[in-house]
């Protein structure tokens, strides 16, 4: 029993194909990957929106803004 389909390398390499674990479940792995990717965008978008909203309110302090502008 081996997750990659080979328990030893006593093989003719001409007969060897994929050597990654859980062959046959590629579609499931891709689906998980796509969920991770889209979920990342969603989380980042929500966090950035909140950040900018808070930053906009704080930026009403003109003295702070002036310091930032002069910092260049």
């Amino acid at each position: 029993m081996s997750s990659i389909g080979y328990e030893s390398w006593a093989v003719d390499l001409a007969d060897v194909g994929p050597i990654y674990p859980f062959q046959g479940s590629e579609m499931l792995m891709v689906a998980l990957g796509v969920i991770f990717w889209l979920g990342w965008h969603r989380i980042q978008f929500v966090r950035e929106s909140e950040h900018l909203k808070r930053a906009k309110q704080r930026a009403l302090d003109h003295e702070k803004v002036q310091q930032s502008v002069e910092r260049y």
């Binding site: 009403l60 702070k64 930032s68 502008v69």
Partner: peptide, 18 residues
């Protein structure tokens, strides 16, 4: 309304905001 940062944040600077 999700393309550009608010004007106040642009002036203050993104690093301070984030």
């Amino acid at each position: 309304g999700v393309l550009r940062i608010p004007e106040e944040v642009e002036l203050e600077g993104l690093d301070y905001a984030e």
